[in-house]
């Protein structure tokens, strides 16, 4: 029975079948496919939030145990560069939202433009991040054996006095949080380029734009995490 169905109506790729190209076989209709995809995306975002919450918790523990250390260590971070990055990232969130809107309105050119601006903003964010990181690493603030307060005696690494509760803890958390966030930005750039290519090929329309919407959700989450990272790391008072 299944073989007859196979041979009769499931010869795909010819476009003769009575469902749109974007609709996967296992869904009855586009709306069902969309709600499945978006629910999946929201569940993924939930796991992302839970993953970052562990790092935020680590930050709050260190801060509650060593308030003076965090207060003095954060002076090493440049709040001006952090602010510029905040503006860049929120602006890219706006252009991402406008890209989704353009696709919804079948405006392919505008959608491409908005995606390109979003990608450029993401790259600008990473360039600023690179400037920040390189100066921190130059100052010997990278945790572990690269940390400036470390000494090496006969091939063994010893932490100098004052390591416990020292600024290394703060910079460990700084590099982990912004590093994981930066990794998300880099992945986001890849996803945005993929969207741009698909959009230029005309794969999206007001009927089907779920990938644009889902990547948008991801991109906004990256923005959301930065909204909390920025005041906690750069503006401690």
């Amino acid at each position: 029975m299944s073989t007859t169905v196979e041979s009769q109506s499931h010869a795909h790729g010819d476009g003769h079948h009575d469902h749109p190209e974007y609709l996967q076989h296992h869904f009855d209709n586009p709306a069902q496919q969309e709600s499945a995809a978006k629910l999946g995306m929201w569940v993924f975002l939930a796991t992302e939030i839970l993953m970052f919450s562990g790092l935020f918790l680590a930050y709050f523990i260190v801060r509650s145990q060593y308030p003076e250390m965090v207060l003095s260590a954060h002076e090493q971070l440049d709040w001006k560069l952090g602010s510029v990055n905040t503006v860049v990232l929120i602006f890219s969130s706006l252009t991402m939202a406008l890209a989704v809107r353009a696709v919804q309105l079948n405006n392919r050119k505008q959608a491409s433009l908005m995606l390109i601006i979003t990608i450029l903003c993401a790259c600008a964010f990473m360039v600023i991040k690179y400037i920040e990181y390189s100066s921190k690493i130059e100052h010997g603030l990278l945790p572990g054996i690269a940390y400036a307060e470390h000494t090496i005696v006969e091939g063994t690494h010893y932490a100098q006095e004052g390591w416990w509760g020292g600024p290394q803890l703060f910079f460990g958390i700084y590099f982990m949080m912004t590093g994981l966030h930066g990794l998300h930005v880099v992945i986001g750039i890849g996803l945005l380029v993929w969207l741009l290519v698909k959009n230029n090929r005309g794969r999206f329309s007001s009927e089907y734009f779920t990938p644009v919407e889902n990547v948008g959700l991801y991109w906004h989450l990256v923005d959301l995490i930065w909204i909390f990272l920025f005041p906690l790391l750069y503006l401690v008072k």
């Binding site: 749109p20 209709n29 069902q32």
Partner: peptide, 26 residues
């Protein structure tokens, strides 16, 4: 290329055409 593919159900309601039900914000 308007596909009025409305087979099946979504959340207990008969499916609507794909371009319906999307909220476009101003």
């Amino acid at each position: 290329m308007s596909h009025e593919y409305v087979k099946g159900y979504v959340k207990g309601q008969p499916a609507k055409p794909a371009h319906e039900g999307h909220h476009v914000m101003p």
